[in-house]
Each structure stands twice: as C-alpha cells, then as structure tokens.
Design a binder for these strands. Structure first.
Lengths: 218, 218, 218, 218
DNA sequence: CATGAATGAGACTTCATTCAT
DNA sequence: GATGAATGAAGTCTCATTCAT
C-alpha cells in the first residue's frame, strides 16, 4: 500500500512535470533564439538547456518552425499585458502620462527579452507571415490604440496641438525601436544611454507637440 | 590592321565582361541576401542567379562574409556618399537641409534594397560580429557624422536650440528605422504612407528644435 | 521479474553495441588511412566501411585529425605497451633482452598496420603538425625511453660498453624503420628477409657494443 | 631589317625560354612537392613559383601525376651520379672508405632535396608503382652495388669479417634513412646532430665488423 | 513518455583541369 | 605557345529529424 501511494505520488509529480515540459522547452528556446536567431539555433542546445533529450522536443512540437512560433506566442503576450492598465486611471497632465508611457515602453523593449522578440519578428517575419500577423494583432495594434488614447486625451484637454499624429502613433515609439536595434547591434561601437536618449526625444517631442504656453497665455 | 582592331575590340569586350563579373555577382548576392538573410543564403543560388559556377564566386571573394561586405560596399555606401555630397554646398536655412536629409535617408532606407540589408544586420549581426562592425564603421558612423554636421550648422547659425541632440543623432532617423521595420513586417496589416509620416515627424521635430520665432522677435 | 531481466539484457546488448561503435569506426579508419594516407582518406569511405552514416563518425570524433589520433591510440599504443611490459621483469643477460626487444619492435613495425601509420606520419607529418606531435609524444618518446632503459641496464651490469648511444637510441631501430620503408616500397624489386636482416644487424651491433670477453677475461 | 633582326632575336630568346620551360616548372614543382607532399601541392602555387600561368603546366605535362613523375625523374638522377665516382680510385683502409661513403650518403640524404624525394617515394610510392620501380632501378640498386663493392674490398683485404652483410647492404644506410625521416618529422621535438649520430653508428658498426686487432695479433 | 544514437541532405570551400582568347 | 578565367566534382563538417529501445 505504501508502494501504491508512492507510485501515485510519483505519478503526480511526473504529471506535473509533464505539464510543465512544453513551457520549460519554450523558455529554453527563447533564450537560444534570442541569442542566436532562428537559423543558428541548434535544437541540441535548446534540449540541453531545457534539461531534456533532443527527441523530447518532437513530442511537443512538430518542427523547429513550430517551436519558434510557440515561443513567440507564449512569451510575448504575458510580458505585454501589464502596460495597458497603467493608463486607465491616470490623473494629472497628459504630458506626464505620455512621458511615463514612453519610458515604460522603451525600458520594456530594451531591458527585457522583448527586444529579442522584436528582433526575431523583424528578422524572420517575412519567412513566417503568420507570426507577423499574430504579433501585430496581439501586440502592435493594442499599443497603437493605447497611444491614440493618450494623444486624444491631450488634445481633448487642450494640452496638445492636433498635428495628426494619431494617424501614425508608432512614430512615438520609433526611438524605442531604434534603441532596440542599437542595443543588440551597435552598442559596443557607440554606447547609448537609453534614459538620456529618451529624455532628449521626449523633450523635443513635447516641445513640438505642446500648445505653446505663450499662445495659451495670449 | 583590321586584325589588330579586331583583337583589340575582342579584348576590350572580354575585359569588360571580366570587369563586370564582380558586380554581376554582388548584384545577385544582394537579391539573395535580401530574400533569405545571410545564413540562409546559399552560394549555389547566388551563383546560378549570377549565371556563373559556384567556384567563380571564389575567384573574386574570399568567403561568404567577404561577399556580403562587398555587397554593402557596392550598394549601400555609394548611396550614402551621394547624400553626403548634397550637404556640402547647401545654402539656405538648416531647417530645409535637415528636412531634405531626413526624407532622403528615409526613402533610401525604405524604398531601396537597403532596408533588407538593415534587417539582415539586425537579425544576424550578433551571429556574425564581423558584419555589424563593418556596417557600423562604413555606414552608421558616417551617417552620424553627417547628422552632427547639420545640427551644428543649425546651432551655429542660430536656427536651432542646442538641446544636446548631437550626443545621439541617431534619434533623428529613428522614424526611418522604424519605417524600415514596419514596411517589411506590418505594412499589410496597417499601411503607412512614408511621406506623410515623415512630414509629421519632421514638423514635430522642428517645432521642438527651432528657436521660437517670438523669442527671436522679442 | 522476467521482464526486468529482459529489459536489462536488451539494454546490455544495446550498450555493448554502442560501446563498440568507436572501435568499429577506428578499425575502418585504420584500413583507409593505411591504404590512402591521411589527406586522401575520405570520411565517406571510412563510414561505409564501418557500416555507419557519415554523420555518425562525428558523434564520436571531433574531426578527421581527432579520428586519426584515436586510431593511433587504439592500434599503436597498446602494442607498444605490451612491449614495455616484457622488459619489466626480464632476467638474464641484457644482450638477450635487446635482441628480443629489437626483433619484437621490427616485427611490430613491419608486419602489422603500424608501418602504414609510420608511412603516413612521414608523408604528411609536415602538412599536419598535430599528427607528428601527437605521434612523437605518444609513441616515439616512449620507445626512446624504453631503449635507454635497456642500454643503461647493459652498462650498469657491465655487459655493454658505454659508447654514448643513449643520446640517440633511435639508431637502434633504424633498421626497423628502413625495413618499414623497404617493405612497402622496394620489396618486390629486392625482397628482404626481415629476420635474417635483423639478425645481421643485431649481431654486428652487439659485437660492436659488447664488452669484449677477452678484455673481461684479461 | 632592324625589325627582322629584332624579331629573330626575340624569337631566339623566346625559343630558349621555351626550351627551359619544362625544367623551370619541374624545379618549382620539386620545391612545392617537397614542402607539402603530393596531394597538398596546388598547381596554382607551382605555376606562380615557376612564373607561368597555371594553364601552361598542361602544355608540358598531362596531369599532376605526370608532373610528379617528371620531377622525380629529373631531380634524382643528377644528384646521385656524383657519389659513385668517389670510390673508384680510393686507396687506404676500407674502414676509412666506408666511413667516408656513409657520411657522404647521409649528408646527401639529409641536407639536399633528396630527403624530400625519399619522403615522396615512401609516401606516394604505393600510389604510383612505376615511380618506385624507376627509383629502385636508377638509384637504390646502384647504391647497393656500391656498398657491396666496399664490403667485398674490406673482406678481400682481410679488414672486415664476412658476416653476410652483402645480402642486405641497405642496413648500412638505415641510419641515414632514419635520419631523413627524423629530420623532417621529429627534429623539433628531439633534435638530432647528424654527425654525432653517424659517428656513433659507424663506430659501433666498425667495431662489430672489423677483424679484431687482438685476434689478428694473437 | 522519454531517450539519444543514428541518419543523410546540404552547406561552404578547394582545386585539378579546360578552353576561349 | 601562353594565358587565366571559369568550371564543377569532391571533401569536411553540421544539424533537423527519426526511431529503436
């Protein structure tokens, strides 16, 4: 009977482990894809990083491509859902809101694994169009909606001039995208202090965007 | 004498063909690199696209990396040099100069094969640091120098506020980089009119950068 | 329980096969290296002779050079070690010991695959210095040490004159080396009876080396 | 007319050069074969060393193999013909003659290009049996004849014991062969002073060969 | 379910040989 | 005769995928 219990317990543990297997593998794969890109990533390395045999990967994923897609799907969403909520109940000037939002996005892009995902999407997107689509729908379009909300808030409250930026709100985060690329490619040749660069960008942007105070006064 | 002429002519033709071989190969290579990325490009395909045997490539280039560098040298750099010259003898307001420069760069990035090169560098730069270094030295650093010149001109002539942008002039072209990525990845889900977007960016930028006319007046 | 045994047995069999794989490969490699030399040996041929796929070789050996070293390690060195042991507890006159040692070495050189290895080292050592160095350290230097021991024993026991041969003990086996070359190159034009030749060499050598018995008497 | 003369002169020079072409090529090839062995020698290198185009080699030799054979044929014979004559009119003790002969041979082997030829023959002999045959007939058999003459002279004059060495006179030069191999393969790991080694060999040899003086006296 | 040995297609690169000039 | 650009077969090594255990 003790044996039976033991077996059940073992089974439970095995079960638990089994359920987590795919995530363990995608987590390991993210690291490898991030480091080496799609083509150069070896499943051997993914396997040993995940602590499983190479063949095991094929129990959960049909192919390397399939694994890649799973990685993008599973790692992007969770890391992005947090940002939106910040905006919901913000009080105070829209300038501060935008400033906060842009800094947050930029830091998320550059300092988490997201910048690797971005690189992967950029690099391999054409090869796997459904990935781009997935990424656009789940991430990009949400981000654009958020930024449009902020811009509208600023205009509505008479804080921002309406320059038509809601057509291409992605312009707001182009420095974050540039930084993403810069950090993973040119940082060693010409380092960039993300905060200073962002402050510069935001200052110029707000200067260009704000309703001039003298006009407001006049 | 007719013979002599004949021989000379033949020689000339052969010579011309020989001289053009490398360009034929780099042209084919550009197409393949753009389509598949660096690692996934097969020299076999480059060769057959160029209409030569595989071994012929090695008569002119030491390795795949060497071939890639030649592609950059022959397609990217010349375009940059043209831009550089535009600035040399520009008269008129720096605002116009900057506007022209940024539009030109953005169009070059997005509408030529350069955006493929950029994607490739972003995607595989870490795997082949040679490429990144080469690209930074030959292209990026030159571009940064040009932009610093423009900024300095604007400040010197009392047209621009000195906000410290010369520290990270790459901010100026971050929309071009963003557009590069956008066009090859998300264009079909949310089209972007490059010109309109650029105008927006430039307007905001200049608004934020220019010495306010009322200050000037006051 | 029967099942357990069955499984254990199966495992054991699989294990055994797995364990033998490297030897199967080195055995095949020896044949190919011997026949064609190092550079001209194709791993394709090694693989098909060993009855495995080309890639399988790389599961066990890092490179062609590595494979060669393994061949030497597994075929040459064991034979040398056997010889070494013979000396360990030899009693009796050093003359007999030397005679036995030289004959043994010569036979090992000429009548086993070792002479092919020697030819290969001679032929391609300069091109692949790795091989020479490895062979010298693993084989030659050990052989020299053995011979120095024998010479010292002879001198210590008052059997040999001390002529300084310990400086270049390789002189002792130069006939074996010559025979190695002769057998694989000139044997068909002028056959050489290895035993008779060795006896001749050893007789002359010992005659020249031994402390004259009349001196000993006188 | 001046032109005609000029042309004739040029033609003569060209002719002269043409006649020497093959030798220039084989000379260059010897250097390359010696340095790298047969397989690793590139005709590109041979051509540029000879100062001709690669295609030119094929005007004079059918293939790389053909060139190799020509090299052996043209470089070995001349370098070997000199030795024989030394013996013809030697007076004095046969011991001195043998000593001189062996040293001469060894130096010729080791310090000229001959040791490269020997290596080539050893290395590639099996691949090209007609080369071995050629070499044996032209070189080896002559050398053996010379050594037999010396041995016979020694025995006839009562200087040497008749131990039957005339059966395998190649034993006499086995140290030279060993040295040949040693110098090109192991010299850097364990240097060998050719002269000292030879003196050792010869002393032992003569000691073993000579009719003992005390016997002669007694 | 899990393993990891085995596979074999395919990549880059080299180089003997050919041939138009 | 001489050139040297061009060829393409062949070699080593890698790695996604399979499958017997």
């Amino acid at each position: 009977m003790a044996e039976t219990i033991g077996k059940t317990a073992e089974k439970a543990r095995a079960q638990r482990r089994k359920d987590e297997r795919p995530q363990e593998i995608t987590a390991a794969a993210l690291k490898e894809f991030a480091q080496r890109g799609f083509a150069a990533t070896r499943l051997d390395d993914v396997a040993s990083r995940a602590g499983v045999a190479k063949g095991t990967i094929y129990l959960y994923f049909d192919s390397k491509v399939d694994l890649f897609k799973a990685v993008v799907r599973e790692t992007v969403i969770p890391q992005f859902e947090q940002v939106g909520n910040l905006l919901a109940d913000f009080e105070g000037p829209t300038e501060d809101l935008l400033r906060m939002f842009l800094k947050r996005i930029a830091h998320d892009f550059v300092e988490t694994d997201i910048h690797h995902i971005i690189r992967l999407i950029h690099a391999e997107g054409q090869q796997f169009p459904d990935l781009s689509e997935f990424y656009f729908k789940e991430v990009i379009s949400r981000g654009m909606a958020r930024m449009r909300e902020i811009l509208a808030r600023g205009v509505d409250r008479g804080e921002f001039r309406d320059v038509g930026l809601e057509a291409y709100p992605q312009l707001l985060i182009s420095p974050a995208i540039m930084a993403t690329m810069w950090k993973s490619t040119f940082e060693s040749y010409s380092p960039m202090d993300l905060d200073r660069a962002l402050d510069l960008h935001i200052d110029i942007l707000l200067n260009g965007l704000k309703v001039p105070s003298n006009e407001a006064q006049g």
